[in-house]
């Protein structure tokens, strides 16, 4: 018989941490927990022992849909040939300011 039963540590949660007020939450890693509240306290203990955060989001990992790494070239292809989306594509006459 195995010592630890499958699923004994709960489900997997992805952890996002905001390191300072006003900036976006950033993926920090993940934790196991049985519910959201426990996931939050586990995330606090695992990822913010040195004041690394002022806010934490947790989300069940199985609710995250990710683009496939291998097909990423094709997936992001639509943006590849659209240089006109950048300001440097446009010419500004000499001496014209604030453009």
């Amino acid at each position: 018989m195995s010592h630890v039963k499958e699923g004994a540590h709960g489900i997997l949660w992805e952890v996002f941490i905001q390191s300072k007020p006003g900036i976006p939450h950033k993926h920090a890693g993940n934790v196991h927990a049985h519910d959201a509240e426990q996931a939050l306290t586990n995330a606090r203990d695992v990822y913010t022992r040195r004041m690394e955060g002022v806010s934490i989001w947790v989300i069940p990992a199985n609710l995250v849909t990710a683009s496939a790494g291998e097909d990423s070239d094709a997936f992001f292809d639509p943006a590849e040939d659209k240089v006109y989306r950048h300001p440097t594509f446009y010419t500004v006459p000499e001496g014209v300011k604030y453009l």
Binding site: A8, H9, G10, A33, H34, D35, Q38
Partner: peptide, 9 residues
């Protein structure tokens, strides 16, 4: 502890 956490959840 794990059992209690699971039951509570």
């Amino acid at each position: 502890v794990l059992d209690a956490a699971a039951a509570y959840a």
